[in-house]
Design a protein around this nucleic acid. Structure first.
Length: 561
RNA sequence: GUCCCAGUAGCUCAGCUGGAUAGAGCAACGGACUUCUAAUCCGUAGGUCGGGGGUUCGAAUCCCUCCUGGGACGCCA
């Protein structure tokens, strides 16, 4: 981290550490190891700008009352070089630090100067991380669950990028296996029906209208050319045609949603390239596979999973799990040091055995992190809408963007933590779209742009932030806003560490709120040139923070609304 | 039955590795536009943090137990 706030925090922590050891040398405290204490920002500002719990943690090892330990520490504190005005011992033994009221203004010039780069931190150290998300079956359109995964995965990726990781976004295309078989049979049935023949979409097949639509296009292009072609070959042709079309549509939708992938990875390619065989061989050699009733099983129980898992069926066809093992082997072979998967809650049972397989292959299971995203429940007219690809009833990403807009949809999905169930009331999102918090944040950005435009029209110019008289910013609303602007690097670091973009959404909402309050209480452009200059720096910094956060969340930052 | 997620204001949800007096949005009520955008602001009201036990200086947060809702437990993916 590199922000002003972090500099001060670590400065205080260092001072406390030194105070502890000199107190130990002088004998005012027993010599003990430094506990894992924190310097944090108290919730109540009456408790100072920063506070530490060190004294309370010393109570037990040093066998002293927390407040006495605090007194001994404070007596040894050397705070030179830090803008601390007052230190107090409070409550059960907190050491509270009060800073000079305008200490935070020092952060503003850097924010304006860094611009798009402000908020970038280097906790990742260029570590290669892959984020795999959505990975929807390419047999249909994207639904609400996929949309949530897309918004979440993309924001997490951006967050990690900002935090100094080398991020690769990946989409795993499930273009192999049983479902493709069902898909082919469904396509074939529709084809025959369209040409007036008797045919039935199989029970387990795809009944959606979009499949019919696809085959209409196929018939237009090829007519009855395949009417008499032998079935397996015919299905292969149709599957190839339909997959290309479906995948193209998925790519297009995601692109419009602001989600762009680095890699589209085909499951079928794992079979074709022999990766699946390679993975199975590796597991076999290390003794994690056994044969039972003609099938090949993975010893999942050795990894704390309840049941062993089939990797090759008795009919000789590998399972999806086998392909997934090969896929993860391949991910690590490609050099990713951190592999993040975003899965729907309905796949959570798959996590322990996947981690087990990673371990069995000889990789660190902790390098694989699976984010389980709770499912989206869709409400329309007060009723739950069942979503299912098989029956073809679902609201697509396309429809969602049409109804509530891309920005609102993305913000909405990313506002909530991944492990909270999401009730999406379409009517509400549509009818009250103006109340959507995303507009609140965007409006703040637009307002600042409007001020800048006004400035330009009046022939004014932006001052050099380094030279502006920032100490003129004395109003509570100004200082409160500046204080939070200085937090962005910290927020990015902590949100990235916890893979929690929803906290960034709350942060930027708070920034917008602080700005709106300031805006309503004070004018930026006034007859006082010096004050105007200082406030221009403040709002310019605010615009940077708003834009950077919105960018991470995949939401646009409009100049006017 | 076993496992995962959730239970916090009327509603939807935050609460980051345990910190001081539990927060925000919406809804409700009362105010503020001759001004750089009122998609805004200011104020009021709203809580046995699902129940009960435990751990400790300190618990919405950790442990145990029970209740409620959702999901997963296939030679499907």
């Amino acid at each position: 981290m590199s922000g002003l706030v972090d500099q001060i925090r670590s400065g205080l922590a260092d001072s406390l550490k030194k105070a502890l050891s000199s107190a130990g040398e002088k004998g005012t405290l027993p010599e003990v190891e430094t506990p894992a204490f924190v310097v944090e920002v108290p919730r109540e500002k009456e408790n100072g700008d920063f506070a530490s719990n060190l004294a309370m943690l010393l109570a037990k090892p040093a066998r002293t009352a927390p407040r006495r330990a605090a007194e001994a520490l404070v007596a040894e504190l050397d705070l030179s070089g830090l803008p601390v005005e007052k230190v107090e011992i409070a409550g059960p033994g907190f050491i509270n630090f009060y800073l000079s009221s305008n200490w935070v203004l020092a952060a503003l010039p850097g924010i304006v100067k860094k611009g798009e780069a402000y908020g970038r931190v280097n906790i990742g150290g260029g570590k290669k991380v892959q984020v795999e998300f959505v990975s929807a079956n390419p047999t249909g359109l994207l639904h609400m669950g996929n949309a949530r995964g897309a918004a979440l995965g993309d924001s997490i990726s951006s967050l990690l990028d900002y935090a100094g990781f080398e991020v690769s976004r990946e989409f795993y295309i499930n273009d192999a296996g049983n479902q493709i078989e069902h898909f082919g049979r469904s396509l074939e049935a529709r084809y025959l029906q369209l040409l007036g023949r008797q045919a039935q979409v199989p029970e387990e097949g795809y009944h959606g209208e979009d499949i019919m639509e696809t085959m209409r296009g196929f018939v237009e292009k090829y007519g009855d050319r395949y009417l008499d072609t032998a079935s397996p070959a015919r299905r292969e042709i149709m599957v190839k045609y339909a997959l290309a079309e479906k995948l193209g549509a998925i790519k297009k939708s995601l692109g419009e949603f602001g989600v762009n992938y680095d890699v589209w990875f085909s499951e079928q390619s794992l079979h074709d390239s022999g990766k699946v065989t390679e993975a199975i061989e590796r597991l076999k050699e290390s003794g994690y596979l056994y044969e039972y009733e003609d099938a090949l099983w993975f010893k999942a129980r050795e990894f704390g999973v309840e049941k062993d898992e089939v990797v090759v069926r008795s009919n000789g066809i590998p399972t999806y799990f086998a392909a997934d093992i090969a896929y993860h082997m391949n991910k690590f072979q490609r050099g990713f040091q951190w592999v993040i998967n975003i899965w729907g809650a309905d796949h959570h049972g798959h996590v322990p055995r996947m981690k087990g397989a990673v371990k069995a292959l000889g990789y660190d299971p902790d390098a694989l992190q699976v984010i389980i995203m709770q499912l989206v429940r869709l409400y329309k007219s007060g009723e739950i809408v069942r979503m299912s690809k098989r029956t073809g009833q679902f609201v697509t990403l396309e429809e969602l963007m049409e109804e509530v807009g891309r920005d609102a949809a993305r913000y909405f999905f990313v506002m909530r933590s991944a492990d909270s169930h999401l009730d999406f009331d379409l009517d509400l999102a549509k009818a009250q779209s103006n109340d959507n918090p995303v507009y609140y944040v965007q409006y703040a950005h637009a307002r600042i742009c409007s001020i800048m435009k006004q400035l330009e029209e009046q022939g004014g110019t932006m001052p050099d932030p380094e030279k502006a008289g920032l100490s003129l910013l004395r109003e509570e609303a100004e200082l409160a806003l500046a204080r939070r602007l200085a937090d962005l690097p910290d927020e990015v670091a902590s949100c990235a560490r916890d893979l929690a973009p929803h906290r960034l959404a709350r942060y930027v909402h708070e920034i917008a709120g602080l700005f709106h309050s300031f805006y309503n209480a004070h004018r930026v452009i006034t007859g006082d040139a010096a004050l105007t200059g200082a406030r221009l720096v403040l709002v310019a910094a605010t615009r940077v923070v708003l834009a950077n956060c919105l960018n991470i969340l995949g939401v646009s930052a409009p100049e006017r609304m």
